[in-house]
Design a protein around this nucleic acid. Structure first.
Length: 429
RNA sequence: CGGAGCGUAGCGCAGCCUGGUAGCGCACCAGUCUGGGGGACUGGGGGUCCCGGGUUCAAAUCCCGGCGCUCCGACCA
C-alpha cells in the first residue's frame, strides 16, 4: 500500500477524551473514530488489525474442532422469553421494536439463538460433540462506556457454544477451548493468565476468565510464575495442572492463603479478553434442546459458551505493547509487516530504489506500507513510530549512494545498514 | 444510576466572569527556500460559537429548557 493513496488520518495531538494509552494511540494512529458513546468507526489501519486478530482466533477455533457459523445481530424477543433472560437481562440489552410492533433486540450474546439452531437439527447423542462459533458484533448498553474499544457498547466478539451428551464430554469441550484460548493469545504475543471466575448472569459452575498482562491493565493480578513457562506445543500438556495453578485478581487474592512460594508469585496488571463457561443444561432444559441417548431416553444437552473480545483485544494488545512514541505491534497482528520510508520522493535514484523494494517485498508476500508522501524525514519517522509497524526500512539519498538501506526494528529501536538484497532476504524469511 | 465537568474551524484551545468586529496554535491550499527525527517564510481558504426559547437596542457571552460528549464511583467480553 502506498501511503499517498491510503487513508490514514493520524493526529499530532491526542484528543482530549482519551484517558488511556490504547485509546489515545488508536485515535492518533487513525485506527478508529468515535461515532457515539462506546460506538466506533474502524478506519483502514484499525480494521486491518481487527481482521488479523479475528483470523488468529478463527484458526485456533477451527483447530480445536469448532465450526464457524454466523448468527444475526438482531434477534426476536420471544427466543429470550423462552430462557427467561428477556426480563432478567435488564437495561444492558438494547431493545428494538420493528414496524409490526414486534419486540426485537440487538444481541448481547447468542446462547438462545444457538440453542434454537441446535434443537431444530440435532436429535442423537451420536451427532455430538458439537461446537458452533461465530464472530459477530454485539451490543451491550453499558452504563458508562469508556477506554475506547476496551469497553465499547458495540463490540466484536467471537463466541463459541459447545454441546455434549454428558458432563465428561462437556468437560472435554471446555478443556479444548481452554487450550485454544491460551494458544490464540500466545500467537498474538500475549501472556494470558486464566483465572477461576464467577459465572454471573449466564449461570453454571465452571468458568475461567483470561487476563492478558499489560502494565497499564485495569486490574491487578497475582499468578504463579509457571504460567510464563508453559509450552503450549508440548504433546503432554496437562490442562488440569494449568487450571490448578494459582491466579487471582486483586479482589480475590489473599496473601495469607496463597500457597505459591514468594519468589514464584508474580504480580502484574491484566486486561480481561476472554471468558469461558460451562453451564450444563441451563438453556437446553429451558428451551427443550435434547438428544436421544444410547438407552433411548431424551436428555438435555450439556452446554458451555466461550467468548473472546476481538475488538477489545485490539486495545488490550496496544496496552501491552506501546512506548512513548506509539504502538509497537507484535508481528502476527501488525496491520503491515514493513513500513518502507522513501525519504526523498523527489529524488530519482532514491525513489527507484524504494519502488523496487516495495515491489519485491509485495511479490514475496510481505505486507508493506510505503511512505511516498512529500513530507520531511521527521514527519515520516514519527508517523511510522506512531503506527508501530514491526520493521521500518529507510531509503534515503545517502544510503542509496552507498548502496545500502536502513532496517530498524520498532520494538528495540536497533538499526542496521544493509544492501537491498540482504534486506529482502531478511524480511522475506 | 449518583457526583463533577465540557460543547467556539478538521484537532488542541482562548474569548464568556464584566453583552458591542469571532480569535490563537496545529492541520489544510498556493508559492519560495529547505530536506536523515513532527522545518522556515509569504499569501490564502474554512465558523448554524450544540439545539430551542427568553432577556436586551445588541447574546459565543446573561437566564430557562433540551441534546450530545467526557471524567469519578457502583457494573461488565
Amino acid at each position: 500500500m502506498r501511503l499517498s493513496r491510503y487513508f490514514l488520518p493520524v493526529l499530532k495531538e491526542a484528543p482530549a477524551e482519551a484517558e488511556i494509552a490504547s485509546h489515545s494511540l488508536m485515535l492518533r494512529a487513525g485506527m478508529i473514530q468515535q461515532l457515539s458513546a462506546g460506538i466506533y468507526n474502524w478506519l483502514p489501519l484499525g480494521h486491518a488489525v481487527l481482521k488479523r486478530i479475528e483470523q488468529i482466533v478463527r484458526e485456533e477455533m477451527n483447530r480445536a474442532g469448532a465450526i464457524e457459523i454466523l448468527m444475526p445481530t438482531i434477534q426476536p424477543a420471544d427466543l429470550w422469553r423462552e430462557s427467561g433472560r428477556y426480563d432478567a437481562y435488564g437495561k444492558e440489552m438494547l431493545r428494538i421494536t420493528d414496524r409490526h410492533e414486534r419486540d426485537m433486540l440487538y444481541g448481547p450474546t447468542n446462547e438462545e439463538n444457538v440453542t434454537d439452531i441446535f434443537r431444530r437439527h440435532v436429535r442423537s447423542y451420536k451427532q455430538l460433540p458439537l461446537n458452533l462459533y461465530h464472530i459477530q458484533w454485539k451490543f451491550r448498553d453499558e452504563i458508562r462506556p469508556r477506554f475506547g474499544v476496551m469497553r465499547g457498547r458495540e463490540f466484536l466478539m467471537k463466541d463459541a457454544y459447545s454441546f455434549d451428551a454428558d458432563f465428561e464430554g462437556a468437560k472435554r469441550s471446555y478443556d479444548a477451548m481452554f487450550l485454544a484460548y491460551l494458544r490464540a493469545f500466545s500467537r498474538m504475543g500475549l501472556t494470558a493468565i486464566p483465572m477461576v471466575a464467577e459465572t454471573g448472569p449466564i449461570g453454571g459452575n465452571m468458568s475461567h476468565e483470561f487476563q492478558i498482562l499489560a502494565s497499564t491493565g485495569e486490574s491487578a493480578v497475582y499468578y504463579d510464575a509457571a504460567f510464563e513457562e508453559v509450552d503450549l506445543g508440548a504433546p503432554d500438556l496437562d490442562i488440569e495442572r494449568l487450571k490448578s495453578l494459582y491466579a487471582a485478581t486483586d479482589e480475590m487474592h489473599e496473601p495469607e492463603k496463597c500457597e505459591v512460594a514468594a519468589d514464584r508469585l508474580r504480580a502484574g496488571r491484566g486486561v480481561e479478553v476472554g471468558h469461558i463457561f460451562y453451564f450444563g443444561t441451563k438453556y437446553s432444559e429451558a428451551m427443550g434442546a435434547t438428544v436421544t441417548g444410547p438407552d433411548g431416553s431424551d436428555v438435555p444437552v450439556e452446554m458451555g459458551s466461550y467468548g473472546i473480545g476481538i475488538s477489545r483485544l485490539v486495545g488490550a494488545i496496544i496496552e501491552a505493547f506501546h512506548d512513548e512514541r506509539g504502538i509497537v505491534w507484535p508481528e502476527d497482528v501488525a496491520p503491515f509487516k514493513v513500513g518502507l520510508v522513501n525519504l526523498r520522493p523527489g529524488d530519482e535514484a532514491t525513489s527507484a530504489m524504494a519502488d523496487e523494494l516495495y515491489a519485491k517485498l509485495e511479490k514475496a508476500g510481505v505486507t508493506v506500507l510505503l511512505d511516498d508522501r512529500d513530507e520531511r524525514a521527521g514527519v515520516k519517522f514519527a508517523t511510522m513510530d506512531l503506527i508501530g509497524l514491526p520493521w521500518q526500512v529507510t531509503v534515503g539519498p545517502r544510503g542509496v549512494a552507498a548502496g545500502t538501506v536502513e532496517l530498524k526494528a520498532r520494538g528495540t529501536g536497533e538499526r542496521e545498514e544493509m544492501t537491498p538484497e540482504a534486506l529482502l532476504a531478511r524480511l522475506s524469511a
